[in-house]
Design a protein around this nucleic acid. Structure first.
Lengths: 241, 241
DNA sequence: AGGAGCGATTCATCCGATGTTTCTACACCA
DNA sequence: TGGTGTAGAAACATCGGATGAATCGCTCCT
């Protein structure tokens, strides 16, 4: 294994073993390099890599620190990774979201505070009248984000956050082709909100399912029409050119 | 933004825009560094970071290539990231797994081929008699992995793969404390398999839920007993150090 | 035709030097 | 006394060049 890769593992090991804890500061580059037995350049490559995935936080003029390592911090690397996916993966992403989002919504129906739910209602009403498309999209993201956080599970919330962003593009397309998408979105948000207010987890779950499935269904048809792919099983990368 | 971070974005951009496609080879370090306007050292940091998350594949003496970018490749970074989580996050991971795994199992009940299901049965039977603990754990991972792949959704399969590995530790603990865990595991695997053979998605889902919930329930009690934390909502890092 | 060897290419690693940012401490002034 | 500004130290950022190691492809010999 390359020295740098080894250094990554060593640093990871120091963190996992507890020798380095969240918030701790690493020895300065020169010292750590000496301790790990490699050059500063190679060590910097290791640190930079761990920095990209949010394990380390490097501050020029100050030092290098271990991040909080909270799931929500580490898992937003997932978003970075998902940026690399092409359209042919969006269906699969959406399918996973259709599994997670209803579950999160049901959990939120039990756990969110009355204040949080009320504030969520305010958010929904803001987009009721004549929503600008961009505002609607932003509000939509925020709506789902709050529910995800409301599930009380930061891992779940982070995953949903990562899965929602790439979906955004699909949502934009939908808005462009289906004029009544905006109205549908708002109506369904209202329905989900009502279910939360009523503390009805199963109803909330059902509406969330309907909501996500709507996007998914549209996308399936759009993609199917575009390249005639069979989405039943594998959907093996019909990259066109 | 730092030069290296900018380089990361530039390379990412080249890939997302399609200028660089899966399998393509990047210009050699010196050339690419010149083109991006930074030194070879700094460029190497960027490349190393993208290499850690499996976007680039660097081969000494050959060149640097863009990976396949398949979801299963990129998402296994999630596993690396999850390695950093401590015990207090395991509950949340398991909770997410309890959402995904039953869904995947139900999908597998519809999509897996008869051959795949039969081969799965062989795997289950192998652990029936007097399973060595390590063999059992390996077979358990393989069992769930095959079902995840059988869902037909590579994103889902990769996420479950990542979520299962950290669970392994908990499973070991369970094996150590509860002697009948092995028997339970095999029995539940058999039940899941029977549901797959019968092509009963909802039954398969139910058994999968029971199976994961068993681990989760045990872990909840074990953690609760260990530090008296309230797991109902936030479970805010009771690090005892 | 097939295999061994050689050279070119490319990444791996190191060293030393200089620039930039941040933090700290202390002197200064109101 | 208390706030403020600045000089210096500390730490990361970036660079250029040099050398080692791995790989690939071509040539030559059998």
């Amino acid at each position: 294994m390359a020295l740098t890769d080894e250094a990554i593992e060593r640093i990871k090991g120091m963190i996992v073993s507890g020798e380095l804890r969240p918030g701790d500061r690493l020895p300065k580059e020169a010292d750590l390099a000496g301790r790990l037995g490699l050059s500063r350049n190679s060590l910097r490559e290791a640190v930079r890599a761990l920095s990209l995935i949010r394990v380390l936080d490097v501050r020029q003029g100050d030092g290098t620190y271990v991040t909080s390592l909270q799931p929500e911090v580490l898992l937003d690397t997932v978003g970075f990774v998902l940026d690399f996916h092409r359209d042919d993966s969006v269906m699969h992403l959406l399918e996973v979201r259709r599994i997670l989002e209803p579950a999160a919504t049901a959990m939120a129906a039990r756990l969110m505070s009355d204040d949080e739910i009320e504030s969520l209602g305010t958010l929904v009403e803001m987009t009721d009248g004549d929503p600008d498309l961009n505002d609607l999209i932003a509000a939509d993201l925020e709506f789902h984000r709050r529910i995800a956080v409301g599930s009380g599970n930061p891992v779940l919330a982070s995953l949903l956050e990562s899965l929602s962003a790439p979906t955004l593009r699909a949502r934009v397309w939908r808005g462009l082709t289906q004029e009544n998408a905006a109205a549908h979105t708002v109506e369904q948000h209202q329905a989900i909100h009502r279910a939360l207010v009523a503390r009805e987890p199963e109803l909330a779950r059902a509406w969330a399912t309907v909501h996500i499935a709507g996007v998914e269904d549209w996308l399936r048809r759009a993609l199917g029409a575009a390249n005639g792919v069979d989405h039943a099983r594998g959907m093996a990368q019909p990259r066109t050119g």
